[in-house]
Design a binder for these strands. Structure first.
Lengths: 350, 350
DNA sequence: TGTTAGCACTCATCCCTCTCGAGTGCTAAT
DNA sequence: ATTAGCACTCGAGAGGGATGAGTGCTAACA
């Protein structure tokens, strides 16, 4: 796509395109010329509309489902609609609901995230996905190792944001259980305040030698320890309203439901999708999506931030016939609210 | 149901009933007399089968979907089948898979539970639900309170089974943050080893006065603390394979799928259902279920134990046309394996 | 020249009917 | 007691209008 011919649409074409897409988004039925001409703000006859519709179809913004059907927006049509026809309005009812949730009393950040995912889905009847918060900026607050038996223990990491990770493990035979306490002390002294993302590195470079010096010779088990303590903290994915989506008329087909569910259960792939987001609001319509499994859907992603480091991604997955205007407004509000909430957190706990 | 007339079936009727149900469970299609008479172990003609089928229908074990259709088991038929016609066979392939998972290396118990739910569902294409482990016998290993800022903190409870619970909270103004450490020490001294279920009580009766004595006057905030630390630890519910169930031909109808999902998302209700289970394997077929939402389904529950105290429930939810024989065998194996695994845990960590 | 009325045409959807086949129940013969 | 035979029932699926919402095109109009 080196050259993209810029197609100029007349005012009237813009108006008609917009009305058609608005109508289809609401009704999910192909839109006919007569229905358009009857609308209040359309002073043209059905025949005129038909001519314009034919032109819009030639330009690729509209499609027919069969030769004598009404028109349906093409993906290119949606793209144009999203890029040029929707003014980023703020819908206040939705905004209030969201602000209420994000700011209501004291919650763990993760609770806020979870509730947001839930509400986002209920407001829209699409499936909401929230990734993160990513851990670029979160720092280790404290590390605990609690022994359960002679050879098992559970390690607990607490971050400055109140996030808690834990993992059980068997204590390597090289390590004398009685040394565990010393080990934890050293780790806490050296690693407290260190960004989570740097823990594994710092452990390898600075801590290991220190451990060998002050604790018994931990030998090869340092790698195991590193693994247990600092590696592969799974990215948390909050998916809200897998079932709400079934309300959409697009899912009046059993096979579609099946393929949707087998897709949505594959959390890894979803997480991968969202990770590509790099800030701002991004709309991927149908085939624009990189992943085959959602080429029938639209995915709207928004990032929420903390200072420099990006923290996570909020997304809504729905049919290409999506309420783009409302969804974009919603994600805008929510990402700002979450960013604000995070900022407050940081100010208090950083 | 004060009196239940005991109906005697002839050997032949038993055989025919069994074959019909087996066939229907496998095929999901109404079973006709000719198909039965053609089976190897059936030496009777189709006409004979028809006569017997008519009798079995009169007795309520079979039904027709319409006047000239083949027969389908009634719920009473399934009940009889489950009670009298299936010998509790152990299916070794399944058994091996399960043993492998439950005993494979060192895992947190919760990981085992989660994986079991997943595998159970994949083996059967039904939806698996695992409740618990209930906390009757688990004891507090250690309590931690980690302050995040001047007025927020996160409380972490670790049990002897390696289970970790955590909750963020605001520090009540009555409590001097510098006293928190003392508070935690007292709590750990007094409560370590106490069964989780008794924590709240013990806190109210024994600890509060002690705290007032040794720490600053915590006043009315003791109730808040109790709430934060010990109350309402939500029962964990692991649901596996919500989507697998869609493979069942019973779900070839969009509305059924919708109602299934809106039911399964209501975790509270499900948890309530499973809590009624009191040991052994229990089969609830269709209308036998107390909850309306699953009167079209069968629910098989099995408890897993630890010593005296029941620990949790494993269940499979499927259509009434369920592979009862296999499912019962599976749950049997799994409940024993989990019970054994728990026992080992206890021996090591009790 | 842009707009509109009119008309022939297309196609999905609904409904009706017909056929086919898998099943039954009943009766009479073995 | 069992079975072969037969008439009957009913669901599923195919075929065939009728309906109606939609189109494209043409010719008339301002």
């Amino acid at each position: 796509m080196l050259t993209e011919v810029i197609i100029m649409l007349t005012e009237r074409q813009l108006l008609i395109l917009q009305v058609i897409i608005d109508d289809f988004i609401e009704s999910a039925h192909p839109v006919g010329s007569r229905a358009i001409s009857k609308k209040d703000d359309i002073p043209y006859s059905a025949a005129t509309i038909r001519n314009e519709m034919a032109d819009l179809e030639d330009m690729g913004f509209l499609e027919k489902t069969h030769s004598s059907s009404g028109r349906v927006p093409s993906e290119k049509g949606y793209r144009y609609y999203v890029d040029h026809l929707i003014s980023p309005s703020i819908l206040h009812e939705d905004g209030d609901v969201i602000k209420h949730i994000v700011n209501d009393g004291f919650f763990e950040f993760e609770q806020i995230v979870q509730m947001s995912a839930e509400v986002l889905s209920q407001l829209t009847n699409y499936t909401s996905i929230i990734l993160g918060p990513e851990i670029f900026e979160t720092k280790l607050k404290q590390l605990q190792i609690i022994t359960l038996s002679s050879n098992t223990a559970v390690a607990i990491l607490v971050t400055n944001t109140g996030h808690v990770e834990h993992r059980s493990f068997t204590i390597p035979t090289e390590i004398n259980p009685s040394d565990l306490e010393k080990l934890v002390n050293i780790l806490n002294n050296q690693l407290s305040g260190v960004p989570i993302i740097q823990l594994a590195d710092k452990f390898n470079t600075e801590i290991v030698s220190m451990l060998n010096q002050y604790v018994s010779d931990i030998g090869k088990s340092y790698q195991y320890l590193n693994e247990v303590l600092f590696h592969e903290h799974p990215v948390k994915l909050y998916i809200g309203g897998k079932a709400n989506m079934l309300m959409q008329p697009e899912f009046n087909d059993v096979d579609k439901i099946r393929s949707f569910y087998s897709m949505i259960e594959n959390e890894d792939k979803i997480a991968h999708l969202l990770k590509q987001s790099n800030g701002g609001i991004k709309v991927s319509i149908g085939q624009e999506n990189d992943v085959d499994a959602i080429k029938d859907f639209s995915l709207i992603t928004a990032a929420y931030h903390l200072g420099e480091g990006q923290m996570g991604t909020i997304a809504l997955l729905g049919p290409t016939r999506m309420e783009y205007r409302r969804v974009i407004s919603l994600l805008n509000i929510l990402s700002h609210e979450m960013t604000d909430a995070l900022y407050m957190w940081y100010k208090n706990n950083g």
